[in-house]
Write a protein that binds this DNA or RNA. Structure first.
Lengths: 247, 247
DNA sequence: TGTGCCACAGTAGCATGCTACATGTCAAGG
DNA sequence: CCTTGACATGTAGCATGCTACTGTGGCACA
């Protein structure tokens, strides 16, 4: 919690104080400043951020709603540790949502879209060179957002956004990454190429491969870290894959 | 807002007051007691429910997060009118999520599941006879929940739950229904049959047909009611349907 | 030493006080 | 008649007061 309250309030552009606290808390969780399984209290957080308890409590309620924290009555609240099973759920859902979206995007991709996707890739590599993880993640997110956004379905976009955030907290916790940022960027290349060539099937396949690969690496890493592997389903990726073409 | 505060507090079983207010507000929106586009205030609602402003505000924040209401600073809040486009988005997402779930459910359906599904159907018809819409909806919901739950993916279940709620508010507003409750119940028959026979493709097809049909009827009804048809996509259902079987 | 008990500190949840701001009203001035 | 602007009203957002409850640590007692 490096921020102090005065800074929070100074850049007060339309956003409510609660919104800013939400952002601060998400960031704090992301960088590991708020650790899972530890009891915190609204009092202490409010004091640290130099704001009153109300906006902190409201922010916590939002995060609790999103499943990131849990209140314990008269005791405090905990940052929830995302279970391996949850991670599997997230990637299963992303498969269900993003693979068809990629298929659709390839079908009706405009030149503008392709250009934007290519720019994303470039920015990802540039960020990789600078080891600027934040910028990298932002462009990774943007790329997926562009693909999903082609559907015109805003709920779809925000939904996947939320799903991505759940797993973001996990990846950041590990310094010893299983692959470099360049590797991750490269993995998006086939997807962008397929969309550029309007090859629907290939785009869907590329997206599918990408999500499964990313998910599996994350799962492997979590298991290696000694996380409880109960409820693990080794064939999580095949769970829904045989999605029939019922027209 | 038929409830008064004392009743709210009397059945205080573990749930916080905020939770109870959320339920009361959802119910109020559902039955049309809180109408869209009207300005309300936390003060007035709190007075009506005989609770303080805090739990009401916290409840409103939850609903605002779910996209059901919107706060307007220093003015009040409005119940949001779900646009036709949003309805399309919801049914598109349900297609993406529920069709594969039905496929999967048919694949690994237990006898217990089939029995439960059949019981749901019976209860739906019984509720239809009694014109008990609430009971009917609950069993309709339960049936879909059972199908989705077979996947073991809890996020999937709660996600679809949320999506269903968005459209529930619309259907309830219209007395002149385009189909009877029995019709709706009957529409689930092929799905249950297909699952009972472990026919995956047929189950997926039945679910797909059901969702598209329900969605289209709702959309037609909204247009007939004179709702703004801008942003309408006549082929919304085909948007993602050609979901390739990439294995 | 082991065990039950109580006082204590700390908390979420709820109630209420306070303030800046947005909007409608209405009267004065063009 | 139309415009303008001070004023009244009502609100969200934020701050703070209050209470019932929960886990803990120490103390008396067996």
């Amino acid at each position: 919690m490096a921020d102090d309250g005065s800074m929070l309030k100074s850049l007060n552009n339309g956003l409510t104080l609660t919104d800013q606290v939400v952002a601060a808390l998400r960031e704090a969780i992301l960088v590991g400043e708020l650790q899972p399984d530890t009891l915190y209290s609204v009092y202490r957080i409010a004091e640290e951020l130099n704001v009153s308890r109300t906006p902190v409590r409201e922010a916590m309620l939002r995060l609790a709603d999103a499943g990131m924290v849990r209140f314990e009555r008269n005791r405090g609240f905990r940052v929830l540790r995302t279970s391996i099973h949850e991670v599997q759920e997230v990637f299963q859902l992303r498969l269900l949502l993003e693979v068809p979206a990629a298929y659709r995007a390839a079908y009706e991709a405009t030149d503008t879209l392709v250009k934007s996707l290519r720019e994303c890739l470039i920015h990802m590599h540039l960020a990789a060179v600078d080891h600027d993880e934040l910028r990298f993640m932002n462009h990774d997110r943007l790329l997926h957002e562009l693909v999903l956004g082609t559907s015109g379905n805003k709920k779809l976009v925000s939904l996947v956004e939320d799903l991505r955030f759940v797993t973001m907290t996990l990846g950041a916790s590990t310094v010893d990454r299983s692959r470099t940022l360049h590797d991750i960027a490269d993995e998006h290349q086939p997807l962008v190429d397929a969309i550029a060539q309007r090859d629907r099937v290939e785009a869907a396949y590329a997206m599918r491969f990408h999500i499964i690969h990313t998910g599996q690496l994350l799962l492997d890493q979590l298991i290696k870290e000694g996380r409880d592997p109960s409820g693990l389903n080794p064939s999580w990726a095949e769970f829904f894959t045989t999605n029939p073409d019922v027209t």
